[in-house]
Nucleic acid binder design. Structure first.
Lengths: 207, 207, 207, 207
DNA sequence: GATGAATGAGCTTTCATTCAT
DNA sequence: AATGAATGAAAGCTCATTCAT
C-alpha cells in the first residue's frame, strides 16, 4: 500500500465524522446532540471523535470552515463570469436554493446552528459571512456601472434585501413551512423559487 | 389589599419570568439556557421558577402561546382593513421592524427555538409561524385580485422576499453592521427602513 | 431558628466536606481520589461538593489555605514569645511533630499532595511556604543577636537544615518508615523525636 | 550486525523509556502522567511502550527495581569501609547531593511515587527507602561504639536530621531559591554544601 | 520493531428538578 | 411565596490498552 492511501483513509474517516455530525446536528440541533450520537451515526466509538477533533465545538467549527469555503468559491466564480447582473444573481439564488435540495442537512446546520454560535459575537469572525455580502454587493455595483441596476440604491444595503429574501426562503424550507406542491417535479419547483425571488427583486411586485 | 391586586402580582411575576426567559433563550438558545440563568435574569431564586411553571419546557411553551397569538392578531387586523396593498404591507413592515426594534429577542426565540420543539411533531397541526407567511401571501393574493400586484408572481413565494428583506436589514441593525445616522431619531430611521424595503419590494432594483 | 445557625450549618457542611477530602486524599492521593469518594466519605451526594466548591482542585486549595494559615499563626506566636532560641525551636518542632500525631491525615495531604501541586511552580505561590522559612530564619537571626546562635551561619541557609530535618521526620512518619517503639507511650515518643532533632541541630552529633 | 548489538539496542531503548518515565513522573506524579507523555518525552510512539512493558505500573516497578538497588549498593560499600564516621557521612552526603544534582528526578520519583504503590502493602516486606535510613543509622551506631558520635542520641532519629538537611538544601537549589555563586564551579559548590551540612550536623549551631 | 487508529471504562462536571424550611 | 441545599441522571472528555498494519 502506498503512503498516500493512508493519508486518504485518515481524511476519509475525518470526513465521515463531519458528515455524520451534520446529519445529527440537523436532526437534533448542536446542543442537544451527544458526541455519542455522532459516533453512532458514523459507526465508530465515540472516543475516536476526540482523536480527530479537540471537542464537540471543533466539530461544528470544522463543518463551517470546510463547507462554507467551498460555497464561497462557487459564488466567487459566478461573480467573475461574463453574464449580466440578473443572470449572475439568478445563478447564485439557484445555487443557494438547490443547496438545500441536495444537502438539506448542510443548510440546516449552517443556517440554524452556526449563525447562533459565538462566531458572530466575536469581531472578525463576521468575516466569512461578510464575504458573501461583499460579493453580492460587488455584483450590484458592477450592475450599476453597466446601467443594469438603479443607481439610486446603496449596494451595501440593497444586497441585504436579496440575501434576506433567499435566507427566509431557505429557512422556510428548512423549517418545513414551505412545502413543495405535489403537482410538479421537485427540481422544477426549486428553480421556480429562485427565479421568482430574483425576478421580484428586479422588477418589484407592482404590475 | 384587595384580592385582584394579589392576582395581578402573581401574573406580573409570571410575566417577569417569561420576559427573562425570552432574553436568555435569545442569547444562548433553549438547550444551553439554564433555569438558573432565567432566575438570575429575573432577579429571583431558581426554585421559584418551578412554582409558576411545571418545568423548563413549559416556560418555552408559555412564551409561544402568550406572545405569538397577540402578534398574529395585529397582523390579522391589518390584513382585514380597507387600506390598499402597499399600505397594508407598509403597516406590517412597520410592525415587524418595530417589533424587532423593541423586542428583537422575541423574534429570535419565536423563529429559532420554538420551531424545533416537539410541539410541531404532531401531525395536522399548522406551523404557527407559517400562519404569518400565509396571511401576507393572502394580502398579496387580494392585491392581485384588485390589480395592485403583478399576477405572474406566486404569492406564497413572493411574500418571503418582503419578510426576508425586512429580517436581514433588522438583523444588520441588531448586529451593529448598519448604523443609525446620528442626524435622525431612531424611530424615524426604522420607519424609513420599512418604507425603503417596501418601496424596493414594489418597484424592484431595475432602472 | 435564628439566622446565624443557618450560616453555621453551611459552614459546618463545607468543613465536613473538607475533612472528608483530607481523609480521602491521605488514603489514596489527590489524583487517584474520586469526587464521589469524598462525597461518600462525607455521607452526601457528589453533586453537593460542587455546590460548595468549584471543582476538585479548589477542594485541595481550600484545605491548604485554611489549614496552613492556622499553622503559621501558631508559629508566628512562638516566634514572638520571650523564650530563648532553643526553646522556641523546640516548641515549633513539637508543634510540627505533634501535628502528625493528632492529625496525621492533614500532614499527609499538606506534605505529599500540596507540595507537588502546581502551587510551587508558579512564582508568588511560593509565598505561603516561604513564610515558614522566613519565620524560622528570623528566630535564628534573633538568636545570633542574643549570642545564642553561631554568628558564622547564614540564617537563611541554616534554617533549611532544621526544617529539612523535621520534614524528613514527618515524611518518615507519614510513609510509615519510622515506627513508634512499642515500649513507650506515643506522646512521649513524639516529644523525644522533636527534642532529638532540635538538640542535634544545636549541639551536633560530636561527643 | 552482530547479535549482541541488537540486544544492546533493545536494552538502550528500554532504558530510554525508563529515563523518560522518571522525568515525567517527577514532573507530574505517577497518576497524572500519561503513557503518551512518557512516549513523547522518549521520542517514540506510545504503542511502543507496551512492547517493552506490560503496562504503566510495570514501568514504575522497573524504575524502582533497576535504579534504587544500584544506589543502595554504593551506600552499603561506603558504610562497610574503613573511614571514620565523619568521612563516611561526608561521602554519603556527597553521593546524595550529587545524585540530586545529576538526577533530581530519580530522587523525587523514588521518594514520592513508589512508596504509595501497592508494592508495600505486602506484609513483611521492608521499605526499600527505609533501608537507606537504616544504613545511615547503622553508621551512626558504629560511630557511637567507636566514640566518634554522642552516645545519648537515638541513631534512628538522628539520621533524619542529616538526610533532611541535605534534602531541603538540595530542594532549595532545584527550585532556584538558593543560587550558586557565580565565582565557583557548580560541582565545587555542591561539594561545599555537602561539607557544610555535615559540619553543622557534627558541631551544631551553638557558638 | 514501530506506529497510531480504535475502543470504552471511568472520571469530572453540569444542571434540571425536588423539597425542607 | 420564596429560597437554595440536596440529589443524581446524563453528558463531555481523558487516557490506558489493544491491535491491524
Amino acid at each position: 500500500m502506498p503512503a498516500p492511501s493512508e493519508s486518504t483513509a485518515r481524511r476519509d474517516k475525518r470526513s465521515a465524522i463531519l458528515d455524520a455530525a451534520i446529519r445529527v446536528f440537523a436532526r437534533t440541533g448542536y446542543h442537544a446532540a451527544r458526541v455519542s450520537d455522532i459516533a453512532d451515526e458514523a459507526g465508530i466509538a465515540y472516543g475516536l471523535v476526540y482523536h480527530y477533533f479537540k471537542n464537540k465545538e471543533e466539530v461544528l467549527n470544522s463543518i463551517f470552515e470546510e463547507r462554507w469555503g467551498d460555497f464561497l468559491d462557487v459564488v466567487s466564480a459566478i461573480a467573475a463570469s461574463d453574464e449580466d447582473t440578473r443572470e449572475k444573481l439568478f445563478q447564485i439564488a439557484s445555487l443557494i436554493v438547490n443547496a438545500y435540495r441536495v444537502r438539506p442537512d448542510w443548510v440546516k446546520v449552517l443556517v440554524l446552528e452556526i449563525q447562533r454560535s459565538s462566531r458572530f459575537a466575536e469581531p472578525g469572525q463576521m468575516h466569512a459571512v461578510g464575504k458573501l455580502f461583499a460579493m453580492i454587493a460587488g455584483i450590484l455595483r458592477d450592475g450599476q456601472a453597466r446601467g443594469e441596476v438603479r443607481s439610486d440604491l446603496d449596494p451595501k444595503i440593497a444586497c441585504y434585501v436579496l440575501i434576506g429574501g433567499l435566507e427566509i426562503v431557505i429557512t422556510g424550507l428548512v423549517l418545513g413551512v414551505i412545502e413543495v406542491e405535489s403537482a410538479e417535479e421537485e427540481g422544477d419547483y426549486f428553480d421556480r423559487v429562485a427565479r421568482t425571488v430574483v425576478e421580484t427583486y428586479f422588477n418589484g411586485i407592482c404590475p
